[in-house]
Write a protein that binds this DNA or RNA. Structure first.
Length: 660
RNA sequence: GCGCCCAUAGCUCAGCUGGAUAGAGCAACGGACUUCUAAUCCGUAGGUCGAAGGUUCGAAUCCUUCUGGGCGUGCCA
């Protein structure tokens, strides 16, 4: 059901005789912001009046006269300068709600489109622990995939794993120097993680040690700059220059502060290693560990038998590690074609670029120079190694050959915008642009302080511990003994755990998806899991209430349909009508998600519908309804609300529980 | 230097291709429970939509300039 579309079609017909651009005016129909103006408003009379040279209210009257709406709407009203206010007829609403009963799709249509949409998302580096930065791509991509698939599109999800990079050099080095083959064979996943952390810690230690003098020097310079600026006396006659000087001083001081905080974090990292006897001994014994790791990586890429064998042996375990997180998040992929899959195709990509005259050698690197970009896209380094731009081009070509998609969505951080601008530009010149390429970019997850989220020591926060925290908090809330007393039969521990997991994981996903993807947002676990507010808990709770009512009434949806067939469906309270209208707007919410690739449209819709339901719940008693006819309508609304909320949450990747 | 993005209530955030009095949640204050789960609902208060111009019937939304902030910027991904 798509009211806006229906109304637009009707107006389109009526506008044909009045203008040669009926669709542009018909598109000026939207839901009202204030219910006193009805349900929908058409704002086309004002702009149209100028074209026709007639007063807008006269134009509105003419349009109202021409448009055929009597089966759908009450008589339109003309208000203010020429707004046409539309109110959907109760009989039409009732008819549509009747149509939703028994419809598993909740009134949402299916597209005819058959050409696939490839969705590239998550794409972590295996062997490295997943961190908070991976939430967004994973959760947004999964939600888009679920939503598009439900809308009828042939979706193909692909997790473009980083499975061929330095992190394997790290593990291989760790295995060769610190690994115990027996222990690794016995318990590979945690052992490999341990090896990764051990070696990576040493590399970071070395980097930190190397950086400290640079940073100290930089602080000196920045301090001197600041002091120099402060010593200048502003010209009192030139207010603008004085202001600019003040600004420069503030900026210089900020720079000093930021460098100092970086220095502090480096020092704490160094102190951490040196305080631990094992780490300190490691650090002393492996002074060139960073270079050695790069050598192990290079050997792997060159096909060194030993390293290749280790890579083949370890990769499945590294995948197990990330799959554990995906299982917990309930995220699946159709394909997991990592960087290693494209390794053999990279040379060919570079050759083709060169033979087509797109690439040229500059400073020993193979570059593609593009109009409108200062820096070239480098596809092969001086040392012969390929870069991610090369892999992305190879991946694009493979996807076109293999899947013949209409669209490819890249759910990747906004900071890579320029990279994708270049990739898309080259794709055009490379003959790979017979497809809509979209960088579905997203902002950064920030901590409480408004800076990118990190632990005190400066490292990124692990994703799994974050999920654990969320579930722990959800548990204390969900398993509050006072609340548990309300349940009959009592809630066993297993059910409590299930509820805590569903609420905790859902809270993180829902909060992430609730923000527009392009904006940065502050991560606040307390707010996400809170009982009050714009949270998944609120929607999940609303769902649980619908199920409680249906259970008490001992009615399945089929029983409700039978009741409606006997009594009909009609509204006796404004809250019923408002809820009905909201339920029928589900399709519009899903199409809005598709349009901007922005799941927050669905989050907003679900919160609004849950809120409307809460009001309905408050003012319209179901079991004590005044008559069986009224009860039939209310039961229908309750059953449909339950299904819409459940389905909507499912498309966000969020689960529900029957009671909480 | 150049490029991209952002600035909306005390706080966290919405605001669709320009529409009527700019919304929600949190926090604050005042109400409603012998509950179909009060994890709820109702009400009050809170805004010069960073600033200034412009486009027009009409601007948070489009354009220009300015201010403040973030990110990116030739061999990491």
């Amino acid at each position: 059901m798509h009211f806006t579309q229906l109304l637009q079609d009707r107006f389109h017909e009526a506008l044909k005789p009045l203008t040669d651009a009926p669709e542009s005016f018909a598109s000026m129909i939207r839901p009202t912001t204030d219910p006193k103006h009805g349900d929908y408003q058409a704002n086309l009379a004002m702009p149209l009046s100028k074209k026709l040279g007639k007063p807008p209210r006269d134009v509105a009257a003419a349009v109202v006269e021409a448009v055929k709406l009597d089966d759908v709407c009450e008589t339109p009203e003309i208000a203010g300068p020429g707004f046409i206010n539309l109110k959907v007829k109760d009989s039409f609403l009732a008819e549509q709600i009747r149509g939703l009963l028994g419809d598993a799709r909740c009134g949402v249509g299916k597209t005819d489109s058959t050409q696939p949409i490839v969705i590239d998302f998550s794409s972590p580096n295996v062997a490295k622990p997943m961190h908070v930065g991976h939430i967004r791509s994973t959760v947004i991509g999964d939600s888009l995939a679920r939503t598009l698939k439900f809308l009828g599109y042939h979706t193909i999800t692909d997790n473009h794993l980083g499975d061929w990079g330095t992190q394997f050099g790290i593990i291989i080095y760790g295995y060769k120097h610190f690994g115990d083959p027996e222990v690794v064979a016995k318990d590979p996943v945690p052992e490999l993680s341990k090896l990764y952390r051990r070696v990576n810690g040493l590399i970071e230690y070395r980097k930190a040690v190397a950086w400290v003098p640079d940073i100290e020097q930089a602080i000196e310079t920045a301090r001197a700059d600041a002091a120099d600026l402060e010593s200048q006396t502003p010209d009192p006659a030139d207010a603008k220059a004085a202001k600019k000087l003040k600004k420069s001083i503030a900026s210089a001081n900020r720079r000093v502060e930021s460098l100092q905080s970086e220095l502090e974090s480096l020092r704490s990292k160094i102190a951490g290693v040196e305080a631990d006897p094992t780490s300190a001994a490691d650090a002393a014994a492996h002074p060139d560990i960073d270079k050695a790791v790069l050598q192990e990586t290079a050997k792997l890429h060159q096909g060194d038998a030993e390293n290749l064998e280790l890579w083949k042996k370890f990769l499945p375990f590294c995948k197990d590690e990330i799959n554990r997180v995906y299982d917990r998040l309930d995220v699946q992929f159709d394909h997991t074609l990592g960087e290693s899959f494209y390794h053999s195709m990279l040379g060919g990509v570079v050759e083709q670029l060169e033979s087509k005259g797109l690439a040229s050698t500059s400073d020993g690197a193979v570059c593609v120079f593009l109009d409108g970009f200062d820096a070239p896209m480098i596809v092969r380094k001086q040392d012969g190694a390929f870069l991610y731009a090369t892999t992305d081009l190879a991946t694009l070509r493979y996807r076109l050959d293999e899947f013949n998609p209409a669209e490819i969505l890249y759910v990747v951080d906004s900071r890579q915008s320029e990279h994708f601008d270049k990739i898309f530009a080259v794709a055009g010149e490379f003959g790979l642009a017979e497809v809509k390429l979209v960088h579905v970019n997203f902002g950064t997850v920030l901590g409480e302080d408004g800076k990118p989220m990190k632990t005190r020591s400066g490292s990124l926060i692990g994703l799994e511990s974050l999920l654990d925290d969320a579930v722990d908090r959800a548990r204390t809330v969900v398993c509050d003994p006072q609340r548990l007393e309300n349940f009959d039969p009592p809630m066993e521990v297993a059910e409590q755990e299930m509820v805590a997991e569903t609420v905790g994981i859902g809270a993180i996903k829902f909060a992430d998806l609730g923000h527009h993807r392009t904006s940065d947002y502050r991560f606040n676990l307390d707010k996400m899991v809170a009982l009050e507010g714009n949270t998944s808990t609120y929607v999940q709770y609303s769902y649980a209430r619908t199920q409680a009512i249906l259970q008490r009434a001992e009615k399945a949806e089929s029983d409700v349909i039978a009741m409606i067939d006997t009594h009909g469906l009609s509204f006796s309270h404004v809250a019923e009508r408002t809820l009905a209208l909201s339920l029928l707007r589900f399709e519009e919410a899903l199409l809005a998600v598709h349009k901007d690739y922005a799941p927050n449209a669905l989050v907003d819709y679900l919160l609004d519908t849950a809120r409307v339901y809460s009001r309905f719940n408050d003012s319209c008693h179901v079991l004590k309804a005044e008559s069986e006819a009224i009860q039939a309508t209310r039961l229908a609304l309750v059953a449909l609300t339950g299904r819409v909320l459940q389905l909507g949450l499912r498309l966000l990747g969020v689960g529900v529980v029957p009671r909480m």
